[in-house]
Simulated assay, not measured.
Amino acid sequence: MGHARPALLAWSERYDHLREVTRDDIVTALDELTGSRRSNLLVALRSLFSHAKKTGTIFHNPTRGIRVGQHPYGLAQRLDQDDVDQATAAATTPAARLVVMLAAVHAARTGAIRALLLDDVDLGNRRLTISGRTRPIDEFTHQVLLEWLDHRRTRWPNTANPHLLINQMSAHGTGPVSTIDFAKKKLRGQPATLERLRVDRQLEEALAHGPDPLHLAAVFDLDPKTAIRYAENARALLASTAEEQDPTSRDEPKGRNQP
């Protein structure tokens, strides 16, 4: 239940019963995790929904057919700038702008965003620590952070919550927000979701600095398999771009001495 609790809390804000949870909800929750965390969540949810179906609490098991093994990944494409601009324009509140910025600029996962502390933000030295990795604060990040901190201070002047992102409920305690669905709803129906923005940022890094998995792992704190996957994705995009720029290169016969 410890593995399933974050997903169940998030669903409880939208649904009144486990019967309402769909396969897409399961897949979305799994897509935010990798490695053992992903498999642990799927095993926990599979056990929960299997028991609920056996006891008649639900009529259909939404985890049926979802494999625990390696997640199949296709070739991810870069987002169009118009899509990114639309996502930025849709984030109309300081909290939504903070979440979108952390995903689009720093490739932060939702769990890492929820876990950020005020102490992780060093505005004086322009440094931001996400998941234990410290990175420089660019001008855009600096502006969004200042806007959010000013709003946070005005809205909840007496809160003792040490987390950077808080809401009406968490301001009365010291724990993180249970979900950031408020930001996801702002982007609902758009190509640039939080997950797509996060992926796009990592692809941008791989394309700008070369498809080096070691560099990606160091910048974004990725596990080796994930870093290799992004590097391979970037290589495929670079190869595709090269072929588009020189479409005859695939059709020209190679001489014996050509590589």
Rank of each mutant, 00 (worst) to 15 (best):
P94G: 03
R235T: 14
L42M: 04
A217W: 00
Q86N: 13
A183D: 11
D120P: 05
N161E: 06
L238N: 08
F140N: 06
A242F: 00
K54I: 02
T88P: 03
P94S: 09
R127L: 15
L117T: 04
H209L: 01
L117H: 14
D138A: 12
Q86C: 09
A103C: 15
L75D: 07
L18M: 11
S39D: 04
Q258H: 14
A160H: 14
H60P: 01
A115I: 06
L45K: 07
G65D: 14
P259L: 04
A206Q: 12
L102E: 04
D122P: 09
L30W: 09
R201L: 03
G132W: 04
S12V: 06
D221E: 08
T141G: 13
Q190C: 07
N125R: 14
A104D: 06
R198L: 03
V219H: 07
R188L: 15
A104F: 01
N158T: 15
A236H: 11
R188T: 14
G132R: 12
A4F: 00
T93C: 08
Y230R: 01
D181Y: 09
H172L: 15
P224T: 10
E139F: 07
L164T: 09
D82G: 05
L165K: 05
L18S: 05
D246L: 06
H51A: 15
R19S: 15
L237P: 10
L216A: 00
L123A: 03
D212K: 02
Y230G: 01
S131T: 13
T34L: 10
H106I: 02
A29M: 05
V121G: 00
V43I: 14
R155W: 05
K186C: 15
A227T: 11
L123R: 13
R133D: 13
D221V: 11
P157I: 01
R64D: 15
F220W: 11
E13G: 08
D119Y: 04
A76C: 00
A112S: 14
V21L: 05
I66D: 01
L145D: 05
R67F: 01
H3M: 03
A90P: 06
H71C: 02
L118T: 10
V84A: 02
P162I: 03
R23W: 00
I26E: 06
R67I: 13
P176S: 10
S50L: 08
A95D: 14
A87S: 11
P213W: 02
G2D: 15
T248K: 13
F49C: 01
A218H: 12
E20F: 01
N233T: 15
A108S: 14
H151L: 10
R188P: 07
I113R: 05
E195N: 15
S36G: 01
I228L: 10
A10N: 04
A160K: 14
H209T: 06
R133G: 08
D181I: 11
L98V: 08
T28W: 03
L146F: 03
K186F: 07
L222K: 07
T226H: 02
R5Y: 09
D200P: 06
P191L: 02
V105G: 10
T55P: 00
T159Q: 00
E147W: 00
P213R: 04
T154D: 09
P191H: 09
N161F: 02
I58L: 11
A160N: 14
E243D: 15
V121C: 01
P259I: 00
A112L: 04
P211L: 08
A218R: 12
L9N: 10
L149N: 03
L117P: 04
A76W: 08
P94K: 10
G35A: 06
N167G: 12
L214R: 12
H3K: 05
